[in-house]
């Protein structure tokens, strides 16, 4: 029985802590992906440096 283990008015809760826990504000900083123009050059370089497609061996 709950009343046998925890007696009313034996426990007090911290009002300030409860208020803070209930506030649940939004995240202060956005984690959205942002536009980075310098990334275009890197992507182009990676595309140019990527290995060629493998070819079928001729002697089979």
């Amino acid at each position: 029985m709950l009343s046998q283990t925890v007696r009313p008015r034996e426990i007090t809760l911290d009002h300030h802590a409860l208020t803070m826990a209930m506030a649940e504000p939004e995240a202060p900083f956005s984690d959205a992906p942002v536009y980075a123009p310098e990334a275009a050059g890197v992507l182009l370089l990676l595309a140019l440096l990527s290995p060629r497609e493998p070819k079928e061996p001729k002697d089979l």
């Binding site: 009313p8 008015r9 426990i11 007090t12 809760l13 208020t19 803070m20």
Partner: peptide, 27 residues
């Protein structure tokens, strides 16, 4: 009921923001 007896709600109604702080109003 026990959770409320450990910290009873205030009798005064908190003012809504921005007139009053947001935390007690949300609570």
């Amino acid at each position: 009921a026990l959770a409320f007896s450990a910290l009873p709600p205030g009798r005064d109604v908190p003012l809504p923001p921005p007139a009053g702080p947001e935390g007690p109003w949300l609570m």
